[in-house]
Design a protein around this nucleic acid. Sequence first.
DNA 1: ATCGGCTCGCGCAA
DNA 2: TGCGCGAAGCCGAT
Length: 466
Amino acid sequence: MIDPLRIRSLNDAPVRPDREWVLYWMVSSRRIGFNPALERAAAHARALKRPLLVLDAVECDYPWANARFHACAIGSLWDLAARFQSAGIAHYPYVEPEPGAARGLLAALAAQACVVVTDDSPAFFFPRSRAAAARRLDVALEAVDGVGLLPVRAAPRGFLRAVDFRRHLASALPTHLGRFPLADSLSEPLPRAPSLPAAVTARWPLARPGDPLPAVVDRSVAPVAWKPGETAAIRDLRSFVARLDDYTEDRRHPDREGTSRLSPALHWGHLSVHAIWAEIADRCGVDVVAGWEGLPEPHRNFLDELVTWRELTHNTAAFLPNYDAYDSLPWWALESSAKHAGDPRPYLYEVEDLETASTHDPVWNAAQRQLVAEGRIHNYLRMVWGKKVLEWSPSPEEGFRTLLHLNNRYAIDGRDPNSVGGIAWVFGRYDRPWGPERPIFGLIRYMSSEATVRKVKMKEYLRNHQ
DNA sequence: ATCGGCTCGCGCAA
DNA sequence: TGCGCGAAGCCGAT
């Protein structure tokens, strides 16, 4: 059974049992495994004895759209198309050829739907687009939260420190581990797939592999080697879990690639946290309901990153107003930064200097080059990368904006509560004051490129990104 | 190599 | 009201 705390009704319109199909408007959970929204839509279809239709649309003018992100979004269409076809589910892959072309498609499919189910997600443009749909549709619209192990909106409040969120997690998690979504949302038989309505496909033609990239999409950020889609994500997951024993030590060193690198798959919804925990639990021979307290240290460390930190940042996105704006940072950090607003900045860079990795600092330049070339920065260096932009910007507000810009434009896991959380941490969120009080930083935790080179193994990394 | 000090806010015990 | 302690650090003293 789907956890009722994951389901929200977004409008007052009724379920209309005499219509043609149940529509799943797939948005941020683009997967078949452990997808409570898809599971919910399938349950409606069985109860109403109607077929299931999945709308899987990629618009071309969402914020930060470019060729890199389009490749991520479109790549999963074909992975899903094959799997929906073999499950006998009608799948409507659509790639918008020009801005605004998709307008009306959801409504056209919803006009023949008994009920519409979509993904819940607290951030980016998703809340606005759901709200617009809720106003427009004449049929019940439900949002189902497949973000994490805990339903985001079931939290009693927003949490601003990991230690407090951990306490909440410890009390809430046992219940929710007992309400796992299905490993295969389509495991139970469904009514036969409808043929897609000709009047709709005539106006919004089905996407096909090899369709050209829409002309309007920004080509200046090129696709990267990361392979999108649930199938690839599960393969990557298994290979990571096999080397999890070394996680605690290896994740610190850029030369070792000990991190999971699963963050893009989580961001695009190609992989769920449930799938990751189930895979680890299975390999360790424990039941998912038992939790990970008894597992070895590397496993616990990874799950703390995956669950505590990831779900904390989603909690922040859902509960802290303007969570991605500078002035939502903690009071002590704003005050300390303000006190140092007049400090001289020995290095000041324009966004363009940063974007082209033209600073005096070889560590920072290497991280920025990795971001541009690969769409990611090694986790440890991502912190230093951020701290330096704080140091080299005319003001912390501008540094904050610059980091969001660089991250949203290049990172394949950007535009996500998690990466906003990482950037906000640079300016003090989730952290505490640290003496001694320094120029520019004030009491905000300081990091240096020089100490980083001493502490972590990154000779090859510096060679590879120059 | 390891250790303390730097500094603030919060939950909890008293 | 006091106490302990907290995402990833840094620096200097031992």
